[in-house]
């Protein structure tokens, strides 16, 4: 049966990166997870349009694509906030008080772990071991890892983002 490659959801040039990933794997269905990684790395998250496009391109049922996208914690179907605060909840950080950091941020900004504030400014996330156990508890503020963080320090750093940008 003849197969015509679907065209990307938009003419955003970044789709070429995703196409390159699929081409490298010969549009094989095995490349599903690699392709989802590529989409997420390029666009920050996976939206329905993207899932549909990947499904068609790799000739995998949409349900399977959706299944994989939701099974793996690394993939997110929602766009992230302007700033992200990732608190390590690995064992070392947990016993050194990471839950207090999560609770403090969660309460002050009314945001549950894994969610983004209503104004889209802050995403509060949790992770499992950042490899900085020696400096527990560890928090990643916008991609920058900080060690031995107290709840006060976390609030202070987030406070700076929130005030600065408004």
């Amino acid at each position: 049966m003849h197969f015509t490659k679907p065209s990307p959801p938009s003419d955003d040039k970044r789709w070429r990166i995703v196409e390159a990933t699929m081409r490298r794997h010969g549009y094989d269905s095995h490349a599903l997870i690699e392709t989802l990684h590529s989409v997420q790395q390029t666009f920050g998250y996976l939206d329905t349009e993207a899932l549909r496009y990947v499904a068609k391109s790799l000739r995998v049922p949409l349900s399977k694509v959706y299944g994989a996208a939701t099974f793996y914690h690394f993939f997110t179907l929602k766009p992230q906030g302007e700033h992200t605060c990732v608190v390590c909840m690995g064992t070392a950080c947990y016993i050194k008080g990471a839950p207090n950091i999560v609770a403090a941020v969660s309460e002050k900004y009314q945001v549950k772990p894994g969610e983004t504030t209503a104004d889209g400014k802050l995403s509060l996330l949790t992770a499992r071991c950042l490899g900085s156990c020696g400096l527990a508890p560890a928090v990643v503020f916008d991609g920058e890892v900080a060690g031995k963080v107290t709840p006060e320090e976390a609030l202070e750093r987030i406070g700076r983002w929130m005030n600065h940008d408004s």
Partner: peptide, 25 residues
């Protein structure tokens, strides 16, 4: 190289293999 995607169970060998095959782990 194949990238994992944040599922503990994928460290189990048969789940890991499923994941390399592009499936749910």
């Amino acid at each position: 190289i194949r990238l994992g995607a944040g599922a503990f169970v994928c460290g189990e060998e048969t789940a890991l293999i499923a994941s390399i095959e592009g499936k749910r782990g």
